[in-house]
Amino acid sequence: MEKIATREAYGKALVKLGAQNPQVVVLDADLSKSTKTNNFQKVYPERFFNMGIAEQNMIGTAAGFAIAGKIPFASTFAVFATGRAFEQIRNSIAYSRLNVKIAATHAGLTVGEDGASHQAILDISLMRSLPDMTVLVPCDGVEAEQAVFAAAAMDGPVYIRLGRSAVPILHAGGDRFAIGKGEELRQGADVSLLACGIMVAEALKAAEELEAEGVSARVLNIASIKPLDVETIVKAARETGAIVTAEEHSIIGGLGSAVAEVLAEHCPVPMERVGIKDVFGESGKPQELLDKYGLTAKDIKAAAYRVIKKK
């Protein structure tokens, strides 16, 4: 299967977007080679602003660009974008609903060797709690590009979560992606696997293995964490009666929490959250980390059997 990191797709998408829309400007904080905003810099140097290692000022500057009618994309590692500059995002962007797109890379454990200091495992939680913030977690390169265009097309703050490592391409091209919509990748009746980001591919793998063992698993790609597709999630809960969520993020505050909130209010069914279990990560190869922290198809499958038993 063809693979590309969502950050790579982001860098390419920015260049296309820049050609279409002269209002797009890009800011980075000395990580443009890693976030891939350097693609944009090469083609549109006058619209690229390196703000140095000063994330708080980068976020505030992006807010100013938005006030002046630009569509700023601000990028750095997810841990710094959402952590170091959280209060700037809250007060200078979200509170005024400014049209700033925060596209943060190196989310989750698959940062790998750099270790826990660089692994964003709380970013979805932080961004999701902000009023008026849209939160997107694309699962592959195709969806990442579509998320970038969808973010640029809407007026308001958007957080786009991107990864470092190459991930399989699960989508054909075409204008499929819609903010606020979940996507059914596989039909199923016994259990629903709701995943985002790199865990979507794992959920599909788990569903295939489950099918071989006689269990029919539905797979939903929840790239739009906020707004959340409540209807599709409730329908999955009603029709399959058991839910497993899977994310490369803490089980506190991310996709699992968001889905649990929906189920608790609309359709309580047995559920399990596959994710990072309220601990920090560590150094290691991405795959080693996913294995160690329980973020694989195998873990999703085990969780599926447990929730089915509770039905």
């Binding site: 400007v25 602003f49 708080q56 000022n57 980068m58 976020i59 505030g60 500057t61 992006a62 807010a63 100013g64 660009f65 938005a66 006030i67 002046a68 009618g69 630009k70 700023p72 209060e87 700037q88 007060n91 200078s92």
Partner: peptide, 13 residues
């Protein structure tokens, strides 16, 4: 502290 960066952004634009 936050207004300063925003002013920069408007001036840059």
């Amino acid at each position: 502290g936050q207004g300063f960066s925003v002013a920069n952004g408007i001036a840059l634009a």
